[in-house]
């Protein structure tokens, strides 16, 4: 009896997993992302060298068994630095997703649910989206002063309107559904309607959009670091590695190949995940990808 109950309870979960990973985009995306995340988390154990360990005798050595991705101008191991850099990139992107999701959900739900707030918030979102992302982030970092926290905050503010737009659109649809009308008619407090009935139903579009914001944040962080206006240049990030490596790229092309590939694969994994999740959430869109 126990076995039967467990089996039947496990079935929906197994079916959901099958459905999730039956989607090739999600599967590929998840596998690549898992490798990147594991490498970043386990960096101190799997990196063969400390990321800042200097070894001038080994400077600008090409890829070999001793140094899989070669070494930089100070003899530092590129493979180890690339793994540690992943930590910063993931940390920044995760922080950006959290900030932009909180801001985006607050603004989007307010605009979508309360008719009076819709016009002013929508115009604010239009205005915020008129700024190219990197340019707005650069200006905010310049104003707030460059640091890891300000980069996260600046990019979080920059990408919040993207989430707010999606949340607003979904909330507008939800607001007109009979069960929300019923909840309003029953006299449920607004906060309860928003938390229980609106927010819960917004989880899927938020998750999909947050995945794309994660990817954009990763690209933007790399760009800011490359330009030298992001996190401190002493911190190994894929962007700072490319910035310092470009001076030597004629003689040591590996300095820009590997950090660049790390960015491409990480962003690609998130794009694949986002695409796959979007198709699952809205099967009408599946035909488009």
């Amino acid at each position: 009896m126990t076995t039967l109950t467990t089996a039947s309870a496990a079935r929906p979960f197994a079916a959901s997993l099958r459905r999730l990973f039956g989607n090739r985009a999600i599967l590929f995306g998840a596998v690549i992302l898992l490798v990147v995340v594991l490498a970043a988390l386990l960096a101190p154990w799997i990196a063969p060298y400390a990321p800042n360990k200097l070894s001038i005798v080994n400077k600008l050595k090409g890829p070999s068994l001793g140094h899989l991705f070669g070494t930089d101008e100070f003899g530092r191991d590129i493979f180890s630095r690339a793994i540690f850099a992943g930590r910063i990139s993931l940390l920044v992107s995760l922080g950006v997703v959290c900030i932009s999701t909180v801001l985006g959900v607050l603004l989007g739900v307010a605009a979508g649910f309360f008719r009076r707030l819709d016009a002013p918030i929508s115009r604010l979102l239009d205005a915020m989206m008129s700024f190219p992302d990197i340019l707005l982030a650069i200006a905010l970092v310049a104003a707030l002063g460059p640091s890891l926290a300000t980069v996260i905050l600046a990019l979080g503010i920059t990408y919040a309107p993207r989430l707010a737009r999606i949340v607003r659109g979904s909330t507008l649809v939800l607001r007109e559904l009979p069960y929300i009308e019923a909840a309003v008619a029953m006299g449920l407090p607004t906060w309860q309607i928003l938390l229980r009935h609106v927010l819960l139903n917004l989880a899927s579009p938020i998750l999909v959009q947050a995945t794309f914001v994660f990817a954009s944040a990763m690209l933007a962080e790399a760009s800011l670091s490359f330009l030298g206006v992001g996190v401190s240049t002493d911190m190994p990030t894929w962007g700072t590695m490319l910035a310092s490596g470009r001076e030597y790229m004629n003689n040591a092309p590996w300095l820009m190949v590997f950090p660049g590939l790390a960015i491409v694969f990480s962003v690609l994994s998130l794009q694949l995940l986002g695409d796959g999740l979007r198709d699952l959430v809205d099967p009408r869109l599946a035909k488009e990808s």
Binding site: A215, L219, A222, S223, F226, L242, M256, G260, I263, V264, F265, V267, L268, Q271, L272, D275
Partner: peptide
């Protein structure tokens, strides 16, 4: 999909 993941500066 790949092109959208490539930073233009790279």
């Amino acid at each position: 999909m790949v092109a959208a993941s490539v930073p233009s500066f790279w």
